[in-house]
Nucleic acid binder design. Structure first.
Lengths: 141, 141
DNA sequence: ATGTAGATGCAAATGCATTGCATTTGCACT
DNA sequence: AGTGCAAATGCAATGCATTTGCATCTACAT
């Protein structure tokens, strides 16, 4: 995502534009997988674009309220991770050896949940699915 | 679960029997849903069977190693919760209003995952599904 | 009954996340 | 372009959940 596109996303959503916010959005946009606050922080430092940790937390809070990111627990550790929800509803395959998550291109459960809704008298508003295993790369080692 | 049954479970798994450990196992056995460490602690106090928090943490660590409990993030908060895995592989419906989780009696995804495995070249070893919504009780309010 | 490895309680340490406050900055208005 | 002000930032302090070090106690084998 270019600097301009990041600035656009902020303006369109009524979020005041700052160097820090643009930078965070760009990191999220470039990422192929959910990122922890810490890894966002590290990636920013590598770009010599340092942003304070609290600022990142506060920025993510804003993005959450606006529904622009999804927050989830890292499936193996105990931190939260974040993805731009522009990428849409998605699930991940997490490798238990290397810890890397990759996006699934489709959701394998939506159909199954309709039945569930009826049988449990529960109004379903969302779900989260995490799948664990060993990725192709780790298998070949 | 009776005191005797709890003691049995410990002995069968080569875990030294103590008042505290029996008590924790019984709380877990009686629970209908995953419990946080804190709520285990509170339930124990109500029974006048107080156990130190560290002891509960350490006990759960032991049970985890032996595969006797499953650990998961509380889907809404940021604590871990634990269920006896004797209850088998299961998923939960969590009410976003009252926070209560109830067990699903079946797993709606196992079949779907077979296909996934092939299409992503990923050896699947496990999965976790959380479903959110509004429970019957909260709906009627 | 007794010795010992392991379990417990307590307090302090850790790790992630949040918050209070002084300072800075973006932006609307002139 | 200059000015004012609300909002954003950085830093340090704080809040929780969890973990750890250590002195004491206890279950269990002998």
């Amino acid at each position: 995502m270019t600097k301009v596109q990041a600035a656009d996303l902020l303006r369109r959503n009524g979020i005041k534009k700052t160097r820090q916010r643009e930078a965070v959005v760009r990191i999220l946009a470039e990422a192929q997988a959910p990122l922890s606050v810490d890894s966002i922080h590290v990636r920013l430092r590598h770009k010599d674009d340092s942003v304070n940790l609290s600022t990142i937390y506060r920025m993510l809070e804003v993005l959450l309220e606006k529904g622009l990111v999804e927050q989830m627990h890292h499936p193996l550790g105990s931190k939260f991770t974040y993805v731009l929800s522009a990428y849409g509803h998605s699930h991940h395959l997490t490798c238990t050896r290397c810890g890397v998550s990759t996006r699934m291109d489709s959701c394998p459960v939506t159909t199954a949940l309709g039945q569930l809704e009826a049988s449990h008298n529960f109004h379903i508003t969302g779900h989260r699915l995490e799948v664990f295993g060993v990725c192709a790369a780790c298998k070949s080692k």
